[in-house]
């Protein structure tokens, strides 16, 4: 939730929100103070107005002491509804694996300026690589950027890391042990991840595409050689947007549909 969205709420709503988030002294706060206190607590979110599920969820969560979930998920074989009253506390959920026993390093784009990295290195791999790297080897994450690799010292036990990056570029990373003499001994290599442009494209050349919904249907129904015969009713129901480029030429046809459909670039319109 942004400051702007909080601004649009009444003080009463803000107080109610503050109460829900356990902000003390909210009754004495002015609107700007309430917003100031709420912003860091509500670190992110689609906003109350935009997402009423937030509110719906908040409603049921209000009586915190009672716990939000009212049943325990015991592995009793169904289908015999367990007529259980509410449990004393929230159900923590069934156990999930702590480790999966394979080496991996994964990058996920958080936003145009940040990448999240998480990893798992098995004890076997670590022992094998550590034996080569020698005692006191440093744990490093190497980020391959468009301008070359960057090394960052990390704590391998942490399991994850947020990286500051530049927009509009492709990244890959690896985790290695760096021996005393500076030699890198790789543990895991990541996927590629791309950050979006954080602003308008410098390209202003415009191409125009017309989607011809009916031509291919008519063609198919015509029963010409090389085309499946009719069955027109089901076809008409199932038809998907067949595309035909009608204006725009040459240029980057590489990105355009190259299926068996008639996609052709005919003219290119320069931007006014």
């Amino acid at each position: 939730m942004t400051a702007e969205k909080l601004m649009s709420l009444t003080v009463t709503d803000l107080r109610a929100l503050a109460e829900r988030h356990g902000i003390s002294g909210h009754a004495r706060m002015r609107k700007d103070q309430l917003i100031g206190a709420l912003l860091p607590v509500i670190a992110a979110g689609t906003s109350i107005p935009k997402n009423a599920k937030d509110t719906a969820a908040a409603k049921v969560s209000m009586p915190v002491a009672a716990g939000s979930s009212s049943s325990s998920s015991r592995p009793t074989p169904g289908p015999t509804p367990a007529n259980q009253p509410s449990a004393a506390g929230p159900n923590p959920g069934l156990p999930i694996p702590e480790r999966y026993g394979s080496d991996r390093l994964v990058l996920l784009m958080q936003d145009a300026h940040h990448i999240f990295a998480y990893w798992e290195i098995t004890p076997e791999t670590f022992a094998r690589v550590a034996a080569k790297a020698g005692a006191h080897a440093a744990h490093v994450l190497i980020l391959h950027t468009p301008s070359g690799p960057e090394q960052r010292d990390i704590d391998l036990r942490g399991g994850n890391y947020y990286l500051s990056v530049a927009p509009g570029a492709t990244y890959r990373a690896e985790i290695s042990l760096r021996s005393k003499d500076g030699v890198l001994h790789p543990l895991a290599v990541s996927n590629f991840v791309q950050t979006p442009q954080a602003g308008p494209s410098p390209r202003s050349d415009a191409q125009w595409l017309g989607i011809d919904e009916t031509f291919h249907e008519l063609l198919a129904m015509a029963g010409l050689p090389g085309h499946e015969p009719a069955g027109s009713l089901t076809r008409l129901q199932a038809r998907a947007g067949e595309s035909q480029l009608i204006r725009g030429e040459a240029g980057s046809s590489s990105g355009l549909s190259s299926t068996a459909r008639t996609s052709s670039l005919l003219s290119k319109r320069p931007d006014g």
């Binding site: 992110a44 996920l108 936003d111 940040h114 125009w208 595409l209």
Partner: peptide
């Protein structure tokens, strides 16, 4: 039926416009 060819940028309608609402220290 005729419109410009543009590849939209990676985006979402979440706060700040990308993936941060669904990927941050509270849920990563």
């Amino acid at each position: 039926a005729v419109n410009q060819v543009v590849m939209p940028s990676a985006s979402s309608w979440g706060d700040s416009g990308y993936n941060g609402v669904w990927l941050n220290p509270s849920n990563d």
